[in-house]
Amino acid sequence: MGKYLFRRFLLMIPTFLGITFMVFCITRIVPGGPVEKILAEAQMMNQGRASGSGGAPLSEDQINELKAYYGLDKPMIEAYFIWLGKVLKLDLGVSSRYSDPVWDTIKDRLPISAYFGIMTLLITHLVCIPLGIVKAIKHNSTLDNITSIGVFVGYAVPAYVVGILLLVWFGSGLEWFPMGGFTGDDFEDLDFWGKTKDLMNHTALPLATYLAGDFAVKTFLMKNTLMDNLSADYIRTALAKGLSFPKAVWKHAMRNSLIPMATHFGQSLGLFLMGSFLVEQIYNIDGMGLLGYESIVERDYPVVMGVLVISSLLFLVGNILGDILVALVDPRVRFQ
């Protein structure tokens, strides 16, 4: 087991290098960048001040200086390794938009996305596993069919549509919940219960949006694997031993059915902690998703790369976590 995990960790290195190198190259190849942005801004200012002067707003020397500042003067490969060297020293660089260290920018936002991620993960598992079990046992019952319709609708409608609809109905129409943001403006002045209530109010709609799409996959994964296992021969053996059906389900089918759930759990952990830029955008939540999205739009490449480093690490660790969970529930998986 230890040896296997060590090998898996070693495998993370080339995967990580591959991901970051590809995105690094893309940021270099696509048009636009911090220098171009500054040029455009300078041009705008020039036009406002004095018309007719034309020409470049910045001199060649100034542009080269800017390029050197952002590390754009060196060839792609060399620049990548310089960046990588810094990352290894835990230095993610400085945001070209805010001039703050990238890590500080991420550090502020990661907990917000993680909060939604962990809530989503908890609720989906707490709801989907029991729901899937009930649906499997009462297959084709009214309850099964009605919940299936609900779950499929949630799955079929994209998250951003669900988000907008919820916002229109419950935020703007009924005014039950605030329109967005992670906390209210007067959050700091509230007492503990006030803060909790405020937070819950702000959490409700985005959380519902996150859940809508994820419910279907997990519920049906649970239902289908359990149904497969219920028709398995070893359930018949269990019944022939004298177990009652509910006990046979609980003692024999359940553990087998949790194997695919365990695989999923590890993988979705990494994805969830990063937040969804669509949902965060809709609800104006200042989390990792929104940060990543804005930094791409603004060509703030140090932040883009920083977000990528964190998200790919989380994803890779999540995968290993999933493997460990599977090994815990399935004795057939023993790492050599």
């Binding site: 018949r236 053996t237 529930v329």
Partner: peptide, 13 residues
């Protein structure tokens, strides 16, 4: 039963 391969629960000793 006929199938000793599947008639035992794979995740229990």
């Amino acid at each position: 039963f006929q199938e000793p391969m599947t008639a035992l629960n794979p995740v229990k000793s």
